[in-house]
């Protein structure tokens, strides 16, 4: 099997994640889609790390995980705050910042 298949898979997962961000209205599901996209890129990093024969890609993937964890914490806190105020977690509801 060609190791590039991992990369193809990653592209596929990334696109699915992007579609999720665009299509879903529940803020938490949108957030999950974002996580999926991050994971897809991580897969790419790991795959290329192996293809290149060094560990830099894995280190980067590690950092992505750390940052994603931090992002999840803050993001979920924001979603909770919004939910408290609006009694809704729909991303379309918070649209006052506009023209």
């Amino acid at each position: 099997m060609n190791p590039m298949n991992y990369v193809y898979l990653s592209a596929l997962l990334f696109s699915i994640g992007a579609a999720g961000v665009l299509l879903r209205r529940n803020a938490i599901v949108v957030f999950m889609s974002v996580e999926l996209m991050l994971n897809a890129t991580n897969l790419t990093f790991v795959a290329f790390a192996r293809m290149h024969g060094n560990l830099d890609g894995q280190v980067i993937a590690f950092f992505v995980m750390v940052v994603a964890a931090a992002e999840v914490v803050v993001g979920l806190a924001i979603i909770m705050t919004i939910f408290r105020a609006r009694r809704s977690a729909s991303v379309d509801g918070a649209n006052l910042l506009k023209y």
Binding site: P3, Y6, L9, N39, N42, L43, V46, A47, A49, R50, Q58, A61, F62, M65
Partner: peptide, 17 residues
């Protein structure tokens, strides 16, 4: 994905995942 990491010589990342 964790399985893929383990398969690609990234056991640490797989476990962390």
């Amino acid at each position: 994905l964790a399985g893929f990491y383990l398969a690609q010589d990234a056991p640490f990342l797989g476990v962390v995942q």
